[in-house]
Simulated assay, not measured.
Amino acid sequence: MGIMFIDPGRLRTELMLEAAVTTADGAGGHTEDWQVVATVFADVEPVGEASRFGAGQAHETVTHRVTLRFREDVASGMRFVRDGRVLDIVTVRDADETGRYLVCRAREEGR
Rank of each mutant, 00 (worst) to 15 (best):
V47C: 03
A38C: 02
I89Q: 01
G29Y: 08
A58V: 15
T61A: 09
A38N: 06
V62G: 01
T23F: 08
A106Q: 01
I3Y: 08
R65C: 08
V36I: 07
R10H: 14
G84E: 03
M1Q: 10
V92Q: 04
V21E: 14
A27P: 03
A19R: 14
G28V: 07
E18I: 06
E97P: 00
D25A: 08
L87G: 00
R105Q: 14
G99C: 12
E32V: 15
R100W: 09
A19N: 04
G2R: 12
F5L: 13
H64Q: 07
V47G: 00
R10L: 09
I6N: 13
T63Q: 01
H59R: 06
R10P: 02
D94F: 09
D83R: 03
T67G: 04
T31F: 02
D96T: 12
D88V: 04
D33V: 07
V81F: 00
Q57T: 13
V81D: 01
D73T: 00
D43S: 03
A106T: 13
G29I: 08
R82H: 04
P8I: 13
G26Q: 05
L87P: 00
R93K: 14
R85I: 01
F53P: 11
A42Q: 02
H30Y: 10
E109G: 01
G99E: 10
H64M: 05
D43A: 09
T39M: 09
G84F: 04
E97F: 11
V21D: 12
R111S: 09
A50G: 15
T31H: 03
Q57D: 02
V44C: 09
T98F: 06
P46W: 11
A75E: 12
A27L: 11
V103T: 13
A58M: 13
T31E: 09
G54Q: 13
T61V: 15
T91V: 06
I89G: 01
V74I: 12
V90C: 01
T13W: 01
T23C: 09
A55G: 10
D33Q: 06
A58E: 14
H64T: 00
T63H: 01
D43M: 05
M4G: 02
D43H: 04
I6R: 05
W34N: 00
G54D: 06
G29N: 07
E14A: 12
R69K: 15
E18T: 05
S51H: 14
A58D: 13
A24F: 06
E60A: 06
V90H: 08
A27Y: 12
T61C: 07
V86H: 00
T67S: 03
M4C: 12
A24K: 13
A38K: 02
P46N: 04
I89L: 03
V86P: 02
R93E: 14
D83H: 04
A58H: 11
G29S: 10
E49P: 08
R107F: 02
L87V: 00
E18W: 06
D88Q: 11
F5R: 09
F53A: 04
L11Y: 11
A24Q: 15
V62T: 10
L17E: 05
A58K: 07
A55N: 11
R69I: 09
R69Y: 05
E97R: 15
E14R: 06
G29Q: 11
G48P: 01
P8A: 15
E97C: 12
E32T: 15
